[in-house]
Design a protein around this nucleic acid. Structure first.
Length: 243
DNA sequence: CCGGTTGTTCAGCG
DNA sequence: GCGCTGAACAACCG
């Protein structure tokens, strides 16, 4: 479910509830869910992998983490963490983190760091990367302060596409390669979005979970790399180490 | 049926 | 106070 593009799909899918009042709230999250009852949904927003329901005096932040799911106008067997019932339809969230945010969202988030946002700022991403010269690129791509919304799949696919080995340090990449990384992080994320909508995302994976490199026919390596220690799938032969 | 994971936070420790 | 590690959470796929 939950890399940035999937949250964009969620946001688009709930737009019809915008402006509606919450008639009833349920859920097993042990915070004061009733606070939302009677409130009008002013907006639905996303920042990276986070989804927000904006009310007048507060917002609700939902993070689907690894396993979170949602249903719109239908229910799963399991108990929802949060259920919002509107005049016409309902919204159910399962297995996710649900928190209130009291602050203005604009004060908390740098929207230009959201890989999917219209306001995405590649120049700013480059500046942030240059401040982390020793970070491995596999970690840098997962850094939500720089690439909010990029997850492990996007990481692996971007590095494979631009033929960069995941263990390069940021400072070792030639400048144009660093810029290509930034550009492709966004570009692949939009491919992800389209493929996910068409239910053909997996079919398009070139590296993630793959065994053989389609370029050179040699085995794809699977290693847990970097401080993030996440699965990296890459081709030693095709993906360059610059150091 | 078990093992693994598209993610993050937090406690505990040195 | 720092970074690092492991646990915890949770649900579905192969």
């Amino acid at each position: 479910m939950p890399e940035g593009p999937s949250i964009v799909i969620l946001k688009e899918a709930v737009q019809s509830f915008k402006g509606q009042h919450v008639l009833e709230v349920a859920g097993n999250r042990k915070i004061d869910l009733q606070r939302m009852e009677g409130q009008k949904v002013l907006d639905f927003l996303s920042f990276g992998k986070q989804f927000f329901i904006k009310f007048k005096k507060f917002s609700v932040r939902i993070h689907l983490l690894l396993f979170g799911t949602y249903r719109i106008n239908e229910r799963k067997e399991t108990a929802p963490r949060l259920r919002l019932i509107f005049k016409e339809g309902e919204l159910n969230f399962y297995g996710c983190s649900v928190q209130y945010v009291e602050e203005e969202l604009d004060a908390l988030y740098d929207w230009s760091a959201d890989i999917m946002a219209d306001t995405w700022d590649p120049g700013k991403a480059k500046m942030k990367l240059l401040k982390l010269p020793n970070a491995l690129v596999c970690d840098a791509l997962l850094n939500q302060d720089i690439f909010a919304g990029v997850g492990n799949i996007i990481k692996n696919e971007v590095l494979y596409r631009i033929r960069v080995h995941p263990e390069n340090a940021v400072k070792d990449l030639p400048e144009e390669k660093l810029e290509e990384l930034i550009k492709e992080a966004r570009n692949y994320s939009f491919d992800f979005l389209e493929w996910k909508k068409q239910f053909v995302l997996k079919k398009h994976w070139l590296a993630h979970t793959k065994k053989i490199c389609r370029r050179c026919d040699l085995p794809i390596k699977k290693l847990y790399l970097g401080k993030t220690n996440r699965r990296s799938f890459f081709c030693d032969n095709c993906q360059i180490t610059y150091a």
